[in-house]
Measured scan of single mutants.
Amino acid sequence: IDAAQIVDEALEQGITLFVVNNRLQYETSRDSIPTELLNKWKQHKQELIDFLNQLD
């Protein structure tokens, strides 16, 4: 699994991931984030931050 897949998966569930001051953040209108997704974010945090920083 790679960062792009995780970002896409989040988007499919209505969650936008982004980076502020090198910290992973998210925006969503959902009430809660699925635990499975949160765990993936934690496991791949640095990859996600690097990936999202490249997009900007």
Rank of each mutant, 00 (worst) to 15 (best):
T16A: 06
T28E: 02
I1D: 07
I1A: 09
L11E: 07
D56Q: 15
S29C: 13
L48N: 00
I1M: 12
D8Y: 15
Q5Y: 09
N21W: 04
E12Q: 14
N39K: 11
A4E: 07
R23K: 14
L38P: 02
L17C: 05
V19P: 03
L11N: 09
R30N: 09
D31K: 11
Q5H: 10
R30K: 09
T35L: 13
R30F: 06
Q5K: 11
F18M: 11
S32Q: 10
I15H: 04
N21E: 11
H44I: 05
D50C: 07
A3G: 04
E12A: 14
E9C: 05
D8M: 15
D50V: 08
V20Y: 10
I49S: 02
N53W: 06
A10V: 02
D31A: 11
E27V: 14
Q54S: 13
F18K: 13
I15E: 01
Q46Y: 07
Q54V: 08
L17K: 00
L48T: 01
S32C: 13
L37H: 02
L48E: 00
L55T: 10
H44C: 06
D50W: 09
P34N: 04
L52A: 00
P34S: 06
N53D: 05
E9I: 04
L24H: 00
R30A: 08
I15F: 08
A3M: 14
Q13L: 14
Y26C: 10
I33H: 02
L24E: 00
S29W: 08
G14K: 04
D8A: 15
E47A: 13
N22M: 07
I49N: 01
D2H: 12
Q25Y: 15
E12P: 01
N39G: 06
H44R: 05
R23V: 15
E9A: 05
F51L: 04
S29E: 12
L38Y: 07
A4N: 06
I49H: 02
Q13G: 05
F18A: 08
A3T: 05
V20N: 07
S29H: 09
T28R: 03
N21S: 06
L17A: 01
D56F: 11
D8Q: 15
A4K: 14
T28M: 04
E36W: 09
Q25T: 08
G14I: 03
D8R: 15
Q46E: 09
Q54R: 12
S29R: 10
D50M: 09
E27G: 06
A10D: 01
S29D: 12
E27P: 02
L37N: 01
R23E: 15
I15L: 02
W41M: 12
V7W: 07
T28Q: 03
N21T: 04
K45Q: 15
I6K: 01
I1Y: 10
D31R: 08
I49Q: 02
I6M: 12
K40H: 05
I15T: 02
T16K: 15
T16F: 14
V7F: 09
L38Q: 06
T16P: 02
T35A: 13
A3D: 01
N39W: 09
N21P: 00
W41T: 03
L24A: 00
N22P: 01
D2T: 15
I15W: 03
E47M: 13
A3P: 13
Q13F: 14
F18H: 12
Q25G: 11
K45C: 15
Q25P: 00
W41A: 03
N21D: 14
D8P: 01
V7R: 04
R23L: 15
H44F: 14
E9V: 02
D2E: 10
I1H: 09
L52Y: 03
D50Y: 09
L24C: 04
E12M: 12
R23N: 15
D31L: 10
Q54M: 11
V7G: 01
K42V: 11
G14L: 04
L37Y: 05
G14S: 03
Q13R: 10
E12C: 13
H44P: 00
L55S: 08
E47N: 07
L48S: 00
I33G: 01
A10G: 03
D50A: 13
P34I: 03
E12N: 11
V19Y: 03
N53G: 07
L48K: 00
A10T: 04
V20W: 10
D31M: 08
K40L: 12
L55G: 09
I1K: 07
I1Q: 11
L55A: 10
D50T: 09
K45A: 15
L38T: 07
E9D: 06
E47C: 09
L38N: 03
R30E: 05
V7Y: 13
E47V: 12
S32R: 08
N21Y: 05
L11I: 07
E12F: 08
Q46G: 06
E27K: 14
N21V: 04
L37W: 05
W41C: 05
D2Q: 12
L24V: 04
S29Q: 11
H44L: 06
E12K: 15
N39F: 12
I6L: 12
L11W: 11
A3Y: 09
Q43V: 10
I1P: 09
R30L: 13
D50N: 10
F51T: 01
P34E: 04
I49M: 06
Q54L: 12
S29G: 08
E9L: 04
W41S: 01
F18W: 06
F51Y: 15
K42G: 08
N53M: 13
L37Q: 03
Q54G: 13
G14N: 05
E36S: 09
F51A: 02
D56G: 13
V19Q: 03
I15D: 01
I15N: 01
I33P: 05
V7E: 01
I6T: 03
A4D: 03
H44Q: 03
H44D: 01
P34A: 05
A4C: 09
K45T: 15
H44N: 07
T35Y: 10
T35K: 12
E47I: 14
N21C: 14
V7C: 05
K40G: 02
L52K: 00
L52G: 00
A4S: 11
V7I: 13
D50H: 09
L55C: 09
Q13C: 10
